[in-house]
Design a protein around this nucleic acid. Sequence first.
DNA 1: GTGAAAGCGCTAACAT
DNA 2: ATGTTAGCGCTTTCAC
Lengths: 326, 326
Amino acid sequence: MQTLTIKDIAKALGVSTSTVSRALRDSHEINPLTKLKIIEYAKSIHFIPNPMAVSLRGKINKSIAIIVPTLHNSFFSEVIEGIDSVAHEKGYHLTIFQTHESFEREVEEIHQAIGRRVDGIAISISGSTNNFDHLANLVDAKFPLVFFDRVPDLTDTPKITIDNLTLAYECTQKIIDKGAKKIAHITTPLILKNIKERFDGFLKCLKDNSIDFDSNLLKVCHFDPKEAEEAVIELLKNDEIDAIFTGSDRITVDVFRVLKKLFPERQEKIFQFGFSNHNIVDLITPPILVVKQPAFQLGVVTAQNLLHNIECKSHNAWKKEDVRIR
Amino acid sequence: MQTLTIKDIAKALGVSTSTVSRALRDSHEINPLTKLKIIEYAKSIHFIPNPMAVSLRGKINKSIAIIVPTLHNSFFSEVIEGIDSVAHEKGYHLTIFQTHESFEREVEEIHQAIGRRVDGIAISISGSTNNFDHLANLVDAKFPLVFFDRVPDLTDTPKITIDNLTLAYECTQKIIDKGAKKIAHITTPLILKNIKERFDGFLKCLKDNSIDFDSNLLKVCHFDPKEAEEAVIELLKNDEIDAIFTGSDRITVDVFRVLKKLFPERQEKIFQFGFSNHNIVDLITPPILVVKQPAFQLGVVTAQNLLHNIECKSHNAWKKEDVRIR
DNA sequence: GTGAAAGCGCTAACAT
DNA sequence: ATGTTAGCGCTTTCAC
């Protein structure tokens, strides 16, 4: 690799390195002619300044960290596409960190990201994170940080979320309109705010329709298909159940699989509805009424907030308000 | 952010920065006691060396670029998981670049990656790349580069691929065994080697079964669902078609959609089979016989080859052979 | 308008 | 075994 430096340019053009540096950053205090000559030459040799040197010297890095539970997931990969579409335009690059739903990994990856001197972090917290000190520290230190989708209870930093409550409410209503009476809910632990909100929207809708919810109809599963299986088996002992609301992408698919495998005949008669961002979920039979989250848009707004704060000189002008995407 | 440096450690412990530096890199020529003291202290203050400084000074960066057409794709995101699993273990981080199937973007992103001084690049080339100079230059410059899945015709650098020919052959055989006689093939342009191989495997199987292939039954579509629709409509004018082989993930789903929308009655009678890495494709009806590529494993092998070459002192010992995954 | 020089945080000769 | 020093590529005072 040609590892050209401004020194090479300076030598070739018979000027000093500082002149080159200034010309390249389009400083006003420089002879337009020299400037032009330098810029032209730099372009001709495909010069790219060494970002290590730039960021060692200055402050910024033009890179942001994205911390997600996993990449291999239709929702998160679409969010990242949204983030990238904004970041790319502004010349930022993404470094990806995965936590695999582990709290320890999350703490470690944040350390790594900071260590790598990223300019900011966009994070969707892991499913097992219930202590937020590592994140609160960042906020206290005024480090540019934006939460998306899975957000903790922290103030003073933007949290970009989807209006889960309303989405859950609306699709529950549709199912009730179709005549469902006895609706079960299978979901992941209610630690995560967005998951909790879906449950709340569901409950609110039942209430508004004067249906009361038997707490036996709520099943909480961790990230293991086995648990979904047990939950379904347990629930279906109740013959009256005519609908199942699933609270997350994975659970939606897991439950569908269990029904198909163990209770094909009952699956025909049970409405399943829930959250999923799988882009071929509309092709499966029997159909599931699916709530698709606006993932790309979530990514766009997340990036906008983060980049605003990164590039904002004064901390007072930082965006700190929560944003809800519909 | 506390931006601690070795200087801080040196001052706190009353030693010189070089002693600290050496202790932290576990140099043998240092007093075990001082070493211990320094390491302990560094740990206690959560010290992470500034990677910018490290890589400015030395050579390596502990980061690799992943260049893919798009992230939001079950196959690529799973490959990246595989790459990350190996890279993470060795302390490398991934910076992701997307080309969105554009040749220009690919050239630009490679420049960016080099500019960022990544230690190596793993790339799956864009669907519209038919000039390989930008890649050949990297190989000539002995820059660590590994191709995966979508590989160009270049020598002297590893190409990690899936044995598409065999996979295509095997599933074609299964369909023939079920009685199919008139099998159409819908695929993306045959520029990409892996796509071409699938076609070849398909043809070979037909030949081995003494079925001859009418070239009218081959339809090539670009990355637009419209084209898939036209292809299907055109093909189904032929009543004898009893099976359709789809050559890529996207095409598989697009074709299924068109059939479902426009020809539901014929869909029942036509075997569809093809490549897809969608993890819920087994749930759709009528079922598609699906070839799932070992994406994670592909990622693992890609990372192993790349990291080997990055960390290898002598260029002679570089891995350069192609690897085929089954 | 341009150059000389210092320094960002770190490592690796080169001393001692 | 440890300290001193130079320098990686760049930006930015401070001179002129």
